[in-house]
Design a protein around this nucleic acid. Structure first.
Lengths: 338, 338
DNA sequence: TTGTAGGCGTTATCAG
DNA sequence: CTGATAACGCCTACAA
């Protein structure tokens, strides 16, 4: 008995005494059905526990309503925040989110995308650091729309959303120097993602323009533990830095904790610190970290907006669109002055 | 031209010079195809860029491979951690995760579930605090399997995974008393979810058994800010508590921060603190919080395991299964002694 | 506005 | 092991 679970439009039609097309139209927004027919259909549907089968609908329409979210490090504050925002907006736009969790292994994103294709996802949003080339190719061939967040791929076709990482990093140099710091350092991970590297380059370049040489350390992966490890190394150097820009808030939290608890340094008196992302923890009073805010809501809404927009396929160049958002400096207490 | 995007099994068959059934079998694990046929099919598929259409497959098989994750507060450390673990295991099990983000509005979970049904999800995993009754009804009627995590619904049918919240809370009373604390308090949110309330009841009961009356404060929602607010209230009381059990690590972090930075209290010397969840931040050296670990991996694997398991439908009682996992006390530095 | 007919891409079934 | 055929549940013409 457990076989026949769902009622089909067919059965609803029979019960309502109308044709199956009438049922179909009732559940298709913007179709013409008389009020009376609609009422009877709805009643029959309710009685039978009818639910539109999106699988079949997607098959017909060549449009599944599925948007694939390809993301690594889901449990990270910044990523989960973005994920949250994205799913909310997607739902409001009548789409549904399929979450694919990629690890750092090679070809991971590729496999994920292939899965998305099998479910005929209308689009994919990639917020995963790993580079995995030829993705756009795959997407284009399968008619998927693609949004790349904080990646630097030069592939044509998709929408690319990026921040002004390079410029932001420059601005923090000014802040450090104004606070009287001269021994600048940059704490980065070995992940080497485009945005991370842009921050590094921007920081080094801006300092260099002021005649300051930056000590750069790259270590481990972009998390709290890596921040601790980097602090360990940097703060035992003969020439200890008096200002450190961390590529990420998570790194900054780790850095700050070992600076304080292990090296008994006072922030910001003896050491100025800044991060990037403005994760929730940055505002916690134990850290009170000066940092750059990822415009998470803006990123999410730009992405979903573009997806909901009817595609301007006419554009023969099809070069894709690139959006550059501003990372606002959030001034807190980890840099002197202000 | 942009209409015809995908090659169908039909076309692959034509190119490979076999029947479409042969193509189907090639892509169905455990079907019998000769090596030669398989090779030719695979070659043609590759050339044509063929990808199985899971929509059509799901339509036929009455099994979409989709598992719906219904979750609120995705951006929270504990939730995102669980989400991460779950999606990973699901993927390994050959399923795909559909993420539905519920807010705290009423009927939110209900709408979510309805969406899941429309996509003919094979199962739903609910890790959302909101109670929303009659969910099991809806699921059962639609043949979905259901996993309830940290909820207390007495509904029949689904798998329920819970912790020994009540007992755990009792154990922390012992720890506090052993540390010499006598003025115990419990910090809770107003969310009132079953697990939160179980912790409260367990704490109060165990203290009561020792002749200690617990001061309970419930305020706001289960986050860092609420923890700060509760600390604000509790620590200005005439009879200031010397040990506080927070229903959640997030609450504990907020509590600890205002206790230290605003009331200049030393933890654990003047104030003992404990939390629940063992989120990553609890181990950060600024907090070093003694807390109970959510067995996230175990929860996730139990859930996915049960989902992958062929359902023992025979069980006429169909009372569902209830799994009770142990929350291990993680001893750190926020309670004296140890 | 309504009903009829045909097809979307797949898998199950059953002969060969 | 292989190939034809019939569903699966829906939508989109087209004709009434």
């Amino acid at each position: 008995m457990s076989e026949k679970v769902f009622a089909s439009a067919q059965e609803v039609a029979a019960r309502a005494g109308v044709s199956r097309s009438a049922v179909s139209r009732t559940f298709t927004p913007g179709a013409s059905v008389s009020a009376e027919t609609r009422r009877r259909v709805l009643e029959a549907a309710e009685a039978l526990g009818y639910h539109v089968n999106e699988l079949a609908r997607g098959l017909m329409r060549n449009e599944s309503g599925i948007v694939c979210l390809i993301v690594s490090d889901v449990a990270t504050p910044y990523r989960s925040h973005l994920l949250c925002e994205l799913t909310l907006l997607l739902q409001n736009a009548g789409k549904v989110a399929m979450l694919i969790n990629t690890d750092r292994s090679n070809g991971s994103v590729d496999r994920a995308l292939r899965q998305a294709i099998r479910y005929r996802a209308d689009a994919s949003i990639i917020l995963s650091g790993m580079p995995d080339k030829s993705i756009a190719q795959l997407c284009l061939r399968s008619g998927q729309r693609l949004v790349l967040i904080n990646r630097d791929d030069e592939e044509p076709g998709p929408l690319r959303i990026n921040l002004d990482d390079y410029e932001a990093a420059g601005r923090i140099v000014t802040a450090f120097v104004r606070a009287g710091c001269r021994r600048l350092a940059f704490a980065n991970s070995e992940a080497g993602t485009p945005s991370l590297m842009a921050r590094e380059r921007g920081f080094v370049a801006a300092a260099s323009a002021l005649g300051i040489e930056v000590f750069v350390e790259r270590h481990g992966w972009t998390g709290y533990e890596a921040g601790k490890a980097i602090a360990q190394r940097m703060l035992t150097r003969a020439e200890r830095p008096d200002a450190v820009f961390c590529a990420t808030d998570l790194l900054a939290c780790g850095f700050m904790d070992t600076a304080r608890h292990q090296f008994a340094l006072s922030v910001p008196n003896q050491l100025c610190l800044a991060g990037f992302d403005d994760i929730e923890q940055a505002s916690w009073s134990s850290y009170n970290l000066t940092t750059f805010a990822q415009p998470v809501s803006a990123i999410a809404s730009k992405a979903v907006e573009w997806l909901s927009h009817p595609q301007p396929e006419d554009d023969s160049t099809s070069q894709g669109q690139s959006i550059r958002l501003h990372a606002e400096l959030v001034w807190r207490g980890s840099i002197r002055g202000g």
